[in-house]
């Protein structure tokens, strides 16, 4: 109850829609010596072992690795959803201690709320932002639904959407509070190839239009080469970053282009040679 009252009081000083939709500076991320282990039934798993990583403002970084190599754990730590055993995560020089709307996450599983319709879901994060009037919130939500091409489905229930549409709504929901960083955890893994190809185009366009720092986790090398400025290879047990591949291809990139395939082949080769050294075990 205190929360809603605070929001109502705060909304007196409203910020305008244009201000809210302003392209803001993306964050710089610094991950320093982050370690994390989990206790499981069979013993302790070292998910991350002194991982360090710098992500520049507005950079699109892809983390690639087999399942269970700790890349999702790293993403959760950057999001502030999990605490590292050691090391620091800095966003714009400030340590990350808790989750916050500066760094929004798009999950692999549909994390949309089934008790709200599409519009309600996109509005959820906006309602938690102070200094916005009701009308402005609605306008902002509409803008992002338009951006992902789902204006027509404003009032649809979540279960009525296809997998691709669900992920578009998730993207709109994550973009709506205007975060500086977007963390994407295998967001397209469960989609069919055709839908995925469409979304590769969309995400590049949106990234360009909205200027976000994006950390993108995937096990699909081609996807990583298509989207990332840089592709980082993860190896499991313990999770470490092993190699780094800059991808210097012009954008927008087409997943089916020959140049991209060449990059992907090179990365896949490196990934395989990592895999030879140790058997990958799914978590």
């Amino acid at each position: 109850m205190f929360v809603t009252r605070a929001i109502r009081l705060g909304s007196k000083a409203t910020s305008s829609v244009s201000e809210e939709l302003r392209v803001i500076a993306p964050s710089k991320l610094a991950i320093e010596d982050v370690s994390k282990s989990f206790k499981t039934g069979t013993g302790v798993v070292q998910a991350l072992d002194r991982v360090s990583l710098q992500v520049g403002e507005g950079e699109f970084v892809c983390l690639v690795g087999a399942s269970g190599c700790g890349k999702s754990t790293l993403l959760n730590i950057i999001a502030g959803l999990e605490k590292p055993d050691g090391g620091n995560v800095l966003a714009d020089g400030k340590p990350v201690t808790s989750p916050g709307r500066e760094r929004l996450v798009m999950f692999q599983e549909p994390a949309l709320f089934p008790w709200l319709d599409v519009f309600g879901n996109v509005l959820f994060g906006l309602k938690l932002k102070p200094n916005l009037s009701k009308k402005n919130r609605h306008d902002v939500a509409k803008y992002y639904l338009e951006l992902v091409g789902l204006s027509r489905f404003e009032h649809a229930n979540i279960h009525e959407l296809s997998g691709g549409m669900k992920q578009r709504v998730s993207l709109a929901r994550a973009l709506a509070p205007n975060p500086r960083v977007l963390l994407m955890d295998e967001p397209f893994a469960a989609l069919d190839a055709l839908t995925r190809e469409q979304l590769y185009g969309d995400i590049q366009q949106i990234w360009k239009a909205r200027r976000k720092t994006i950390v993108f986790v995937t096990h699909n090398v081609r996807e990583a080469a298509c989207l990332g400025d840089r592709v980082l290879l993860f190896s499991p047990h313990p999770g470490r970053i092993r190699e780094e591949f800059p991808v210097e291809l012009p954008r927008p990139r087409d997943i089916n282009s020959v140049d991209l395939a060449a990059h992907a082949t090179q990365i896949t080769k490196a990934l395989k040679s990592l895999g030879k050294a140790e058997v990958t075990v799914a978590r």
């Binding site: 929360v3 999001a79 502030g80 916050g100 709307r101 760094r103 929004l104 599983e109 994390a111 509070p177």
Partner: peptide, 14 residues
């Protein structure tokens, strides 16, 4: 996952 998603969007306590 609902909790986690809501946490990142700034939802807390009440």
């Amino acid at each position: 996952i609902y909790r986690r998603a809501a946490l990142t969007m700034g939802s807390k306590r009440l």
